[in-house]
Design a protein around this nucleic acid. Structure first.
Lengths: 177, 177
DNA sequence: AGAGAGTGCTTGAAGGTTCAAGCACGTCGC
DNA sequence: GCGACGTGCTTGAACCTTCAAGCACTCTCT
C-alpha cells in the first residue's frame, strides 16, 4: 500500500515515520506498479528460460558468469557474494548445489585458512558457453529490443542510482550483513 | 553471460538461436548489470523492511493491498493471481498462510462453485493501515527520493514497455500458464 | 604469548516458490 | 443427458532463501 488508505491515519503510526507519511503521487504509484510488474515478469521469464535450457535459475547462472570472468576463473566466497549482491549463506548453499552439478569446485584459500575459493570447472565453463546464446537472446527479446538506445541508457542510469543508494557502502545501513 | 565468451562460439549452439548470437554491447551490459543489482538490492531491502514491520514479504503485502483496493475487499483467486503476476499455485499457498495469520479469509464464489474468493479481513486491513506508512517511506527512500520527476517518469515508461512485452496477452507465450 | 573480538564460511530449520498432478465443477456437442 | 474436454483451485514434493547459530581461523592489544 503505497497509496493512502481510505480512512485518515492520523495518530498511532508504525514505529518508523513520526508525522503524516509522504504518500506517493498518482504518477509515482503508476511507476511503482509498473516496476513491480516488470521485475516480477522479467525474473520469471528469465528463470524459466534458464531453468529449461541450463537447469538453474538466473542467480545461479550469474554466479557462474562471474566466476568465468574472474582471473583464473576463481573467486573468494565473500567476494563472489558481494559481487552477486547475495548473502554468504545463500552463496554457500548455491555453491554446494553447483558443486553437485560438477560446475564449480571448492579450493582452500592459500593465504587464509578460513577462506574458500569457488572455482569454475571446465564442465561449468562449457555449460555456460552452450547456454549463453539462449540467455542473451532472452534478455534482448525481453528488454533491449523493445527500448530505444536512449531509453536503455536512461534506464541504466536510474538503476545505477537506485543500486548505489542501497549499496552497503553507499547507503548507511549494511542490509547484507 | 550476456557477453561473448573468450573463445569463438561459431558452430554447435544451444537449441534456440540458429546463427551468431546478438551479444550485448558494452553499454547494454552495463545497463543490464545495473538493473540486476538494483532489482536484487531493492527486493531485498523491501522484503526485510516488511518482514520486520509487517511479518511478511513484499509479494504477500502486495496481495493484501490489492484486496484492500478491490470492491468489497474481495477477489477471485485467479483474478488476484493475474493482478499480482503470480501463479495460481503460489497464490494458493500464499492465501493459506495469510489465512493462518487471520488477514485473509476464503469464501465460496456464489456464481461458480469451483471458485473461491479471497477476502481481506478487518484485521488484515488494520495491519495494512499500520504498516503502510513505513512501506511507502521505504519506497520513497530507496527510489523516488533519489530520482528527478523526469527520471521517475521515464523509468515508469520503460517498465511499462518491458512488462507489456512479457504479459501473456501482450507477448505470444503464456509464461504464467 | 594469550585473551577477546572480529572475519570467513557453513549448517539446519522454517518458510516461500515451482512443478506436476489431481479433484471438482462447468461447458460444449452430440 | 452424458461423455469429453476445459477451467478453478489445491496439494505435495523438490528446491531455494533466510535466519540464527556455530565452528575455525585471524587480528589486536597488552
Amino acid at each position: 500500500m503505497t497509496k493512502r488508505p481510505a480512512e485518515n491515519p492520523e495518530a498511532a503510526e508504525a514505529p518508523a515515520p513520526p508525522a503524516e507519511p509522504r504518500w506517493l503521487t498518482e504518477g509515482e504509484q503508476r511507476t511503482w506498479l509498473a516496476y513491480r510488474h516488470a521485475s516480477t515478469l522479467l525474473e520469471d521469464y528469465l528463470d524459466r528460460q534458464l531453468q529449461r535450457d541450463a537447469g538453474m535459475t538466473h542467480v545461479y547462472y550469474g554466479l557462474l558468469v562471474r566466476l568465468a570472468e574472474a582471473p583464473r576463473r576463481r573467486m573468494r566466497m565473500t567476494e563472489l557474494a558481494e559481487h552477486a549482491k547475495i548473502t554468504r549463506s545463500r552463496l554457500s548453499h548455491a555453491v554446494a548445489r553447483l558443486e553437485g552439478n560438477g560446475w564449480v569446485r571448492r579450493e582452500e584459500c592459500p593465504s587464509d585458512k578460513r577462506g574458500q575459493l569457488a572455482v569454475l570447472t571446465d564442465e561449468g565453463y562449457e555449460m555456460l558457453r552452450r547456454s549463453a546464446p539462449g540467455h542473451v537472446e532472452a534478455v534482448r527479446t525481453a528488454v533491449f529490443d523493445r527500448l530505444t538506445p536512449e531509453q536503455a541508457e536512461l534506464f541504466g542510469e536510474v538503476c545505477r542510482i537506485v543500486a548505489a543508494g542501497l549499496q552497503p557502502a553507499g547507503g548507511d545501513v549494511p542490509w547484507l550483513r
